[in-house]
Design a protein around this nucleic acid. Structure first.
Length: 354
DNA sequence: AAACCGGGGCT
DNA sequence: AGCCCAGGTTT
């Protein structure tokens, strides 16, 4: 089987037209690859244009405030990606002449660039003959070549890498790697792959052995943790209280409202007995305007059950003044917030009770 | 090696 | 209700 020739033939007919396709600007390719980490192409396209419009060069990204980068990233998830991009841009200015380095190994040292992205940038931008192995490639190789090794193990990774390097088109690694991505996304899909029209169906191990559904071998995922949040939308004069998340937890560096986390669903109702409530309001009274129903917000590894409590306070503790930012209701939109907060604010505008 | 980190679309 | 997406980093 001439793998690269069959793939090239498929690609000549089925190639996707994407904004980051057939470009060589290393910065643009870098941004696209980071955006697309664990992110669907359809979701990433808008962010790609918006990000490069806001930060057209590595220099502009290096000079940007992290909060501004996170605001542009809002809604895309995995926010460490945005912080790493900005951090890396700053690093490149002083250590690499403001440019991405041009070898696979040096790309790997940049925060936010791992084995896949280093291979993608090295091949797409610099034409280096290195594999760029993502979920698509694992799936394609596992099925066609009958590889049952786990993609999570070190030996499995090496096995896949060796096969891809062996079959890849060293004369056009950029086209070869991009063709694999399109082939995985369009033809050899996770479920219901289009084997009938596949150019590899006569040689594909999984097709011939009826193991399409069991390849690649997937690892069992652990139980999803449930958490219970009460967000206090505290109105004080013309402001509301917000703070930046700094703990080693979800949504690091994003902004939020005063948060009471409780142990279970029924404890959501007793937010007025919490320590945080007393620390903010002391013994002074507050007027509760609205208590939202419990909103379920699913992350890949946690299920959040969130209740929003909108209230008006005439007095706050000194601790509250020290701890929170007082944000004019007109400026709340300038802060990067989790999607679940953005959605709630869109549905329940802040001006209503002011 | 396994856990952690978001959000959305598809089935 | 799962699965998985142009994965990387931390534990």
């Amino acid at each position: 089987m001439d793998f690269k020739k069959l793939l090239r033939g498929w690609y000549s007919v089925n190639k996707r037209d994407l904004p980051w396709r057939d470009i060589t600007n290393p910065y643009h390719i870098w941004v696209s690859e980071v955006i697309l980490q664990q992110t669907r192409v359809a979701q990433g396209i808008g962010y790609y244009y918006r990000f490069l419009n806001e930060f057209p060069t590595i220099t502009s990204l290096a000079l940007a405030k992290e909060d501004k980068v996170l605001k542009v990233w809002q809604g895309l998830g995995y926010y460490t990606r945005a912080r790493n991009l900005q951090k890396a841009a700053v690093w490149l200015m002083t250590n690499s002449n403001g440019e991405l380095p041009k070898t696979y190994d040096s790309l790997l040292e940049i925060p936010g660039i791992g084995p896949y992205s280093a291979g993608a940038i090295a091949s797409f931008a610099f034409g280096l003959a290195v594999p760029a192995i993502d979920g698509n490639v694992y799936r394609i190789v596992a099925r066609i070549f009958g590889v049952f090794a786990s993609t999570a193990s070190a030996t499995g990774k090496k096995e896949f890498n060796d096969i891809v390097y062996e079959v890849m088109d060293k004369d056009n690694p950029a086209q070869f790697n991009q063709a694999l991505l399109d082939f995985g996304a369009l033809q050899c899909t996770p479920r219901k792959p289009n084997c009938v029209t596949c150019p590899f169906n006569s040689v594909c191990y999984a097709y011939r052995n009826n193991t399409i559904e069991s390849l690649p071998v997937k690892v069992m995922k652990g139980a999803v943790r449930s958490r219970f949040f009460v967000y206090l939308i505290v109105k004080y004069k013309d402001s509301i209280l917000m703070s930046k998340r700094t703990a080693k937890d979800i949504w690091h560096s994003l902004y939020e409202f005063p948060l009471i986390e409780v142990d279970d669903q029924k404890s959501l109702e007793s937010f007025q007995n919490s320590t945080l409530w007393r620390k903010i309001f002391g013994k002074s009274g507050v007027y509760i305007n609205k208590v939202s129903p419990v909103i379920t917000h699913k992350l890949s590894h946690q299920t959040l059950n969130i209740m929003f409590v909108t209230l008006t306070a005439s007095r706050l503790s000194q601790w509250a003044f020290r701890t929170y930012s007082f944000v004019s209701t007109n400026n709340v939109g300038d802060f990067s917030v989790p999607v679940v907060i953005d959605n709630y604010l869109a549905a329940e505008p802040l001006g209503e009770y002011l």
